[in-house]
């Protein structure tokens, strides 16, 4: 919808508010009122052109369409490529990650399962497949954790594996172990990345839990951030 259609609709509504009392009352000349009703749309458009930024809508739509088009186009290209070359583990891995980003979890699981079968000695493939499985089942325990631990055996610095191993330990209440994995992960992440900050916060919570569990800070009870309440 063009912005001008919206402007026209709003002006029309404004005119209705003036038109109804005009129709309901009798007497007096009407022409000054009609002048007023005619002036309103013109002045609105004029003021909006002066104050507003109608061009921004198209500019923004363009940016959005481009990025959307790029993502869709790349995904389609990748899917087509994999139809021709189904033995490409790297391709299935990339496709699976793209599906996860788009919340298409069952598709992701299928694609990453192929990647894992094609390259079962590649730590990345194992831990990414583990994440897809965990997202499907809602839990890291069982098969996903097995895959994560296998991935760590293959490469003890694999980032996704460290993240998931730390999370699994945290969910079990094994604070010391989760700290071990996450601190190791933080050393490998770029400091300005969003993941670095998120993991950093998780580490702080785990540290608090660890201190609490050890009885050192039984007064300074700590809660997860989403539960933090103000003192008042």
């Amino acid at each position: 919808m063009s912005i001008w259609l919206g402007v026209a609709a709003l002006v029309l509504v404004a005119l209705v508010f003036l038109w109804i009392p005009l129709r309901r009352t009798a007497g007096g000349k009407r022409w000054p009122v009609f002048g007023l009703l005619g002036g309103l749309p013109a002045l609105t458009v004029g003021l909006y052109l002066y104050l507003g930024a109608p061009e921004i809508i198209e500019a923004q739509a363009l940016i959005k369409a481009q990025s959307q088009y790029d993502a869709d186009a790349m995904l389609t290209a990748l899917e087509n490529k994999l139809k021709k070359e189904p033995e490409d583990a790297e391709g299935w891995y990339a496709l699976g990650r793209a599906y996860i980003a788009m919340q298409r979890i069952p598709d992701a699981e299928a694609a990453l399962s192929k990647a894992f079968q094609l390259a079962p000695r590649e730590a990345r493939m194992l831990s990414q497949y583990a994440e897809a499985l965990a997202l499907t089942s809602g839990s890291l325990e069982g098969r996903p954790l097995e895959l994560v631990l296998q991935a760590l055996e293959l490469d003890y610095g694999e980032e996704k594996a460290l993240e998931l191993a730390g999370l699994a330990a945290y969910q079990r209440g094994d604070w010391a172990q989760s700290l071990h994995f996450w601190r190791r992960l933080m050393k490998r992440l770029p400091k300005e990345s969003e993941l670095y900050e998120d993991i950093g916060q998780a580490v702080k919570i785990a540290e608090g839990k660890a201190a609490e569990a050890s009885g050192l800070g039984d007064r300074a009870r700590l809660e997860a951030p989403e539960k933090v309440k103000k003192p008042h």
Partner: peptide, 16 residues
């Protein structure tokens, strides 16, 4: 789009 329509709404409100 919505901020622009909000802007137009304020312009109309001023005239009204």
């Amino acid at each position: 789009m919505i901020p622009e329509l909000g802007h137009v709404a304020l312009i109309l409100a001023m005239q009204l």
